[in-house]
Nucleic acid binder design. Structure first.
Lengths: 310, 310
DNA sequence: TATGATGATAGGGATATCCTATCAATAAAA
DNA sequence: TTTTATTGATAGGATATCCCTATCATCATA
């Protein structure tokens, strides 16, 4: 039967034959028998419908067509070698570009503290980081557009594995001139009737806040939902209400809290739990687990100020 | 057994699978069965020692390594397609770049008249033309560095086929003020005692001239052998002797023979025979024969002034 | 003339490739 | 919840491909 595409082997044989200029010599270098080489070259010529080699008693010479196609054959083999090199690289350390999704409330404040450490441990690791809302991240992860997601619980677990990284406290921030800022200790009952600003509903903290407010008798400012922690901060400064933000945000962005007061609330153990998530059966789940462990230890050393718990 | 290099088929399967995102769909498009596809992808992964595809009940997704290698795989297939395209081109008309050797006493004066015609008939024909001395040309042809040689007889025929193209007369050229230039008719006996300039010994005309001179009683100017027809012409103008040059040279270069007289010698049927030569068993010998025929007819129409005989 | 090199050919065995039939697990529909 | 359809994995067997050894015919050379 007529073949359709030359074989990589046939191209290798052809190139070697062109360099050796005798079938026997080339066959020896290729560690195959001369009849095998003859047959494969013949097959190659048949699939291309061209005579590539001129046979004579004194050896083999390329025809004009053969000379021209030799260039192409070398290019094909070149690309194949590139592929093999790439694959070989990937056999040492994690291979490929991992796509990590991250919530906007986490990425800018956490990643700067851990990416250098990741690169140091996995020099060949390539991370493509993409921010999105939690719901979009979950869908992207489930459908394979992302490999990893760095997010705070609760996070859906239909076919996902989530590994807890750490818990971080949420801090109350108020305007500098707010009555609460002047108290020595802020108690839970002080929050009654206060206006609490939240992120949009797509963020998990929204529901957390909703629950909290109903318990404490505070109200949620539904008309002014923030789309970022920075936006929330600006709204607090403008006196539109109070809010809770994670401590990593505070320690990354608000070194001198101009116009703001950062407080803890007594007897209110408010925190968010950060997790790393991936598809349950992902072939790289072993590596992802290592990654989670590494992130945990990096955070422990680089963010000791933030009083995180593990 | 462990394989060494991925198969072209495996790469095709892999790329198609990446695009289809389900084994069954990809197999259907590839017109193979799903188990075959599964097996080949598995083989590919085994040769690369990498997991390329993440299998789930809802289809197949690429792993990070798979995504990165997909690019390489596409490049390999791209190059292979280039090779196939090239081969397909060569199936229409003569394929490849033909290397033609030509004597310096022929090329510059004959090729301008025939190359345009060749290109017109064989649009895809690519000719690489190289000038060299007849002896070097013969060796290059025998050892496969050239495919064709355009040269004048005699030309060695151990394992070569030579096809006569035409015969062209040799013309006597003298200085304008030479006594022979004033005669109405130049007879053979007028040449007795004259000094005849020739090309170097490597050229076949040298021996032809040697024989002629001994017959006519002329002498060969051994101290001043020319390395080109143009050199001979300059030497004639300088009054160093007479010489014979082919009529194609005259009709190409000397439109107004300044300082020169071009003459025929009565009863002296002096000419050179031009041939096209190739290796006896060359796979393209059929085409070469066509080529010789075409050159003959092109010369016949384009060089009718030169009084060639066929 | 004899020798050593070349590529071509014949016959047979090992392996790779591909198929059909079937399974187990899941997602979607009833 | 149950049923149905769809997913990829697996088993067994037919066929094609690849490769080998042994041998031949031809030619260059000693």
């Amino acid at each position: 039967m007529a073949l359709e595409t030359p074989t990589i082997k046939q191209l290798e044989y052809f190139v070697r034959l062109a360099e050796s200029s005798t079938f026997r010599g080339a066959a020896e270098q290729l560690k195959i028998s001369q009849p095998t080489l003859t047959a494969q070259i013949y097959n190659l010529e048949k699939t291309l419908n061209l005579t590539l080699v001129e046979r004579s008693r004194s050896g083999a010479t390329l025809t004009p067509a053969g000379r021209d196609l030799l260039t192409n054959a070398r290019q094909v083999l070149e690309e194949m070698n590139g592929l093999l090199d790439q694959a070989a690289m990937m056999n040492h350390g994690p291979g490929g570009t991992f796509r990590m999704g991250v919530s906007p409330t986490i990425g800018p404040y956490l990643l700067p503290h851990i990416l250098p450490g990741l690169h140091q441990t996995y020099a060949s690791l390539k991370l493509f980081v993409r921010e999105n809302t939690p719901k979009a991240l979950e869908l992207d992860l489930l459908e394979g557009r992302l490999d990893l997601v760095l997010i705070s619980q609760p996070f859906g677990t239909p076919r996902l594995t989530t590994e807890v990284l750490f818990e971080e406290p949420l801090k109350l921030i108020t305007p500098e001139d707010h009555p609460l800022a002047k108290l020595e200790r802020v108690e839970t009952h002080h929050l009654r009737g206060q206006n609490i600003l939240t992120l949009e509903e797509q963020y998990s903290s929204y529901h957390q806040m909703e629950l909290l407010c109903s318990e404490l008798g505070a109200t949620i400012a539904r008309d002014y939902e923030g789309s970022s922690l920075d936006a929330l901060r600006q709204m607090v400064i403008m006196g539109m209400g109070l809010t809770f933000v994670p401590s990593t945000y505070i320690y990354s962005e608000i070194h001198q809290p101009q116009g703001l007061s950062v407080r803890d609330v007594e007897n209110l153990n408010l925190h968010r739990t950060l997790v790393l998530a991936w598809r349950q059966n992902s072939p790289n789940r072993g590596f992802y687990r290592q990654l989670a462990e590494l992130i945990r230890s990096l955070v422990k050393t680089n963010l000791s100020d933030a009083k995180l718990s593990f």
